[in-house]
Nucleic acid binder design. Structure first.
Length: 886
RNA sequence: GGGAGUAUAGCUCAGUUGGUUUAGAGCACCUGCCUUACAAGCAGGGGGUCGUAGGUUCGAAUCCUACUACUCCCACCA
């Protein structure tokens, strides 16, 4: 038989993925006999393409879900996508623009047709890419946040929250995107890290009925026409005499009061602050406090309107007006100073335009009360965050939670279920018919034609916060009276709460916290037990991977190059929960090398000739050790999984296979070249190998499935993906320790060979001076085999010319024969002697300390005394040998 | 400005309630090997005064204090 010496993933991956799909192994259903294990995917945006962040995130989910499936749980991983209202709308608008179509010209219904078309075309790309990764999602359950039932659920929740009094409409200072013409949540406003260059203009305002001026400093001179006050600090002696007087706004000659407020900093700018309540959140608050007029001079598209009282500026963009007015001021000698200034300007995450603070009527959710249970749940560890450091962040946010602006001036999304009556009043209802009924209660003659539905849609997160319930159609049983899902349908009752949510810490508040809030509000129960927060995938230089930097590798290409298994393990090798992952292709290479290692272990097992004999004693010991070692490793690996230490679980598996199985075990049982292997030994070795494949399967699903089937003939349903997870049995620590001692000894022998230039092929003798020869007896034959020893002699006399070393306080010697270089030997021994003396010194210092001797526990003391004895013995032999050498 | 976190080998990280050698792993590095499972490999090796300064203790990477550096989150000065 000839098997390629290199594993070729391309040949097997698609084959097995298709097989798993055909056999419906990913599909989960209500099954009272089994414990459910549910994960809902963080739904990627329909605009997205697979990036490295998704790779990391979904690999972790797949590892967890595959392990659960093998453990006999009903493993359900629900995939889906998020409609991502602003991101998608921006893409569709851009696409239409290329076709020469303007959104405003085609109207809402027509636009939505294009948007849906766009979603159908591109929305599924990312899910298809996840299949290449091996993601074992239940594709029959693929959900979308604007599916019919989901849409209905979002509306129901809006109506319910309105009825419960959690939703209100208010005039607020919000972040306005002048390009997308929509409000943005605080979370959608980005700030450049180092700020942006700006100019602080110092402008003179004349005091009314006086020759005096005040100088105010502003970055936004174009807003002065909206000024309705000037504030100074009451403690500022420069200005106390002005408080209560009036100042005059340049050009438009409006008289505005000078007021005193602690808010004004004494040492910033000129110490004098102009108040423009319509165009700055702080000014708005100040204005409210001091009852100042609000004059909104900027249109929704960022141009100035007639309220600015300067006809030449009307209809011009705010930044153009800034330039114009600065010039005008300069000419009028009103500009005292222009100061360069670094400021953090907010920009829209989606359109990158400078965000305009704007007063606007928006819908809000009151957050304080509704989030109380959600705060407590994490606080008291009912829901656990991994790593736990995020608990603090969570608490801090939840305790200071602000009301949530949920309306967006967009079309793509869930339209707000509020209908306006001609008189400006409104009703909130699930459907138009219901709305009409409610409206008629207010005004009996009203008809459907009189009602006008709110044009706005909801913030994306106001739909995705229902995800863990909505993907199981949970809201079909929504009870309007109690405002809860009182009688969950069978699916929701079974799969909810989900087990773990795997997501990025950036959306802890956007999404995770809000899902927890919604879960308790509508199910009265947490949406998930654990939250695993991944890190950010960065490049080697520590930069975040981003499209604009072009530093993100294409995951699909990576998988073609290293195999999906290689990339999966590459992602996981060094990414503990919550830590950023500095990505390096080398990691994938390591993953690929690992697959190749396993492939070759299989080649060895498959390539051996078999003879019908029982195992030799040495082979029996090897098998016994490997089985015990496997059980020990299973306990360790299970512990890592339990703590969501996925990297550690992988490393444990990696070392178990590479070091213990391949490097030690296979070398132990491998027959001499050309010799056959005992059938019994081979069968045991294969049985162990298959167990190892199972343990590895969650990490490397493809190669393990391929090898599972290559080991022998298996039916199409006998797949490793559904094989039983090996349970850890108790293990005998004695044989593991005996093996460790043997390995240490073998390493020392190899070390001697390597440093003395003795070929591995030359058999050597070994003499061990020990009080406990039985410690070596179990592994004696294996030590001889792996160390290539002709004999091991206990407590015999070593010739003078020997290489010696110490194992476990036992002195070992290898007769040097003619392999000796006296000078070199002497130098090495001197070095060793020095080290031993230094070591003894440190031990003696400890033992000479009376307080240590009196206070340390007996065990610790005994240890130190043993160390002393060892060191002394070593020094003695070294000195003797050196004396003999002259 | 408020809050949180981190600092251990070249890199990424372990180090469980202070106590088994003068601190471990993977990768990287160096040396020697094309030893018929695997050069995508084998064998061996070097490398850290555990961020700095104090303190507690018989004993500190581990506990305490201060400092320094970096990271993240929140708020944000016109």
């Amino acid at each position: 038989m000839s098997i390629a010496s290199k594993y070729n993933p391309a040949e097997v991956e698609d084959k097995w993925y298709k097989h798993w799909m055909d056999q419906k192994f990913f599909h989960a259903q209500v099954n009272p006999e089994k414990e459910p294990y549910t994960i809902v995917i963080p739904p990627p945006n329909v605009t997205g393409v697979l990036h490295m962040g998704h790779m990391l995130n979904n690999t972790i989910q797949d590892v967890l879900i595959r392990k659960a499936r093998m453990e006999g749980k009903e493993a359900c991983w629900v995939p889906g996508t998020d409609h991502a209202s602003i991101a998608t709308e921006a893409k569709v608008v851009a696409m239409l623009r290329e076709k020469g179509i303007k959104k405003s010209e085609i109207g809402r219904d027509e636009f939505m047709k294009y948007a849906w078309e766009w979603k159908e075309k591109y929305g599924g790309i990312i899910l298809e890419q996840l299949k290449k990764l091996g993601a074992s999602c239940d594709w029959d359950r693929t959900s979308f946040t604007m599916d019919e039932g989901y849409y209905k659920a979002v509306v129901q929740v809006f109506v319910d929250l309105y009825r419960k009094g959690f939703i209100y409409r208010d005039l607020r200072m919000i972040n306005w995107d002048c390009e997308a013409k929509t409000a943005l949540s605080n979370e959608e406003v980005m700030y450049k890290e180092d700020g942006e260059k700006s100019v602080l203009y110092h402008i003179r305002y004349q005091i009314k009925d006086s020759k005096e001026f005040v100088v105010i400093a502003t970055q936004r001179p174009e807003t002065i026409m909206g000024d309705t006050g000037i504030a100074v600090n009451p403690k500022d002696p420069r200005f106390t005499h002005l408080i209560g007087k009036k100042a005059i706004v340049p050009f438009i000659n409006r008289e505005i009061p000078i007021i005193a407020d602690e808010y004004v900093e004494l040492d910033f700018g000129s110490g004098c602050l102009k108040i423009t309540p319509a165009h700055d959140p702080n000014d708005y608050e100040l204005g409210k406090k001091h009852n100042l007029e609000v004059i909104d001079t900027i249109n929704l598209d960022g141009t100035l309107n007639e309220r600015c009282e300067m006809p030449e500026y009307v209809g011009k963009d705010r930044f153009i007006v800034r330039k114009m007015i600065v010039k005008k001021m300069r000419e009028a000698e009103l500009l005292v100073k222009e100061e360069d200034f670094i400021t953090k300007i907010g920009r829209s995450e989606r359109t990158n335009t400078v965000v305009e603070p704007k007063l606007s009527l928006q819908w809000f959710i009151k957050m304080k009360e509704i989030s109380r249970t959600a705060l407590k749940a994490v606080e008291e560890d009912e829901i656990q965050l991994h790593p736990p450091k995020f608990k603090n962040t969570y608490r801090h946010w939840m305790e200071n939670v602000k009301d949530w602006c949920i309306s967006r001036q967009l079309w793509w999304g869930h339209r707000i279920p509020a209908w306006f009556l001609p008189d400006g009043d409104f009703v909130v209802a699930n459907t138009e018919e219901e709305a009409l009924k409610l409206a008629q209660e207010k005004s009996p003659n009203i008809t459907l034609a009189d009602l006008k539905q709110d044009e706005d849609v909801l913030d994306t997160w106001a739909s995705s916060w229902l995800w863990p319930m909505a993907v199981f159609n949970g809201f079909e049983n929504f009870d309007e009276k109690s405002g809860r899902i009182e009688q969950p349908n069978a699916e929701l009752a079974y799969f909810y709460p989900t087990k773990v949510l795997v997501t990025a810490p950036e959306i802890l508040f956007f999404w995770v916290a809000r899902m927890i809030i919604a879960g308790y509000e509508y199910m009265g129960e947490m949406p998930f037990k654990d939250v695993y927060l991944t890190g950010i995938v960065r490049d080697k230089q520590g930069r975040k991977m981003s499209k604009s930097l072009g530093n993100s590798p294409d995951p699909i290409e990576l998988m073609q190059k290293y195999g999906a298994d290689g990339v999966r393990t590459g992602m996981l090798f060094s990414s503990p929960a919550g830590n950023d992952l500095p990505f390096d292709e080398k990691l994938c290479e390591q993953g690929r090398n690992f697959s190749n290692k396993i492939w070759n272990a299989f080649r060895l097992l498959k390539g051996l000739d078999v003879v019908q004999t029982p195992s030799s004693n040495a082979e029996k010991v090897a098998i016994q050790w490997m089985e015990n070692r496997l059980n020990q490793a299973l306990v360790e690996i299970e512990d890592h999984y339990g703590k969501y230490r996925i990297s550690d679980a992988l490393m444990g598996t990696y070392k178990l296979i590479w070091d213990d199985y391949c490097a030690w075990f296979l070398e132990m049982i491998k027959p001499a070249y050309g010799d056959p292997i005992s059938e019994e030994t081979l069968n045991s070795s294969i049985a162990i190998f298959e167990k190892l494949l199972k343990v590895l399967h969650p990490f490397m699903p493809f190669i393990t499935e391929e090898l599972w089937h290559s080991m022998g003939t298996r039916g199409e349903k006998d797949c490793i993906i559904v094989a039983e997870w090996p349970k850890a049995a108790t293990y005998d620590k004695g044989i593991i320790d005996a093996a460790s001692l043997a390995f240490e000894l073998i390493s020392q022998i190899r070390n001697i060979r390597s440093s003395k230039g003795i070929s591995p092929k030359e058999p050597l003798e070994l003499i061990i001076k020990t009080e406990k020869p039985e410690a070596y007896s179990q592994f004696q034959q294996l030590i001889e085999k792996l160390g290539n020893l002709s004999s091991i002699q206990f407590n015999g006399n070593a010739p003078e010319m020997s290489f010696s070393f110490i194992i476990n306080s036992d002195e070992c010697a290898i007769p040097a024969g003619n392999n000796v270089d006296l000078e070199k030997e002497k130098a090495e021994m001197l070095k060793e002697l020095e080290y031993a003396k230094g070591f003894l010194d440190s031990v003696m210092k400890k033992l000479g300390n009376e307080r240590f001797v009196n206070n340390a526990p007996a065990q610790v003391l005994q240890n130190e005394q043993n160390k002393k004895a060892d060191a002394e013995a070593k020094i003695k032999t070294l000195e003797e040998s050196l004396a003999k050498m002259g």
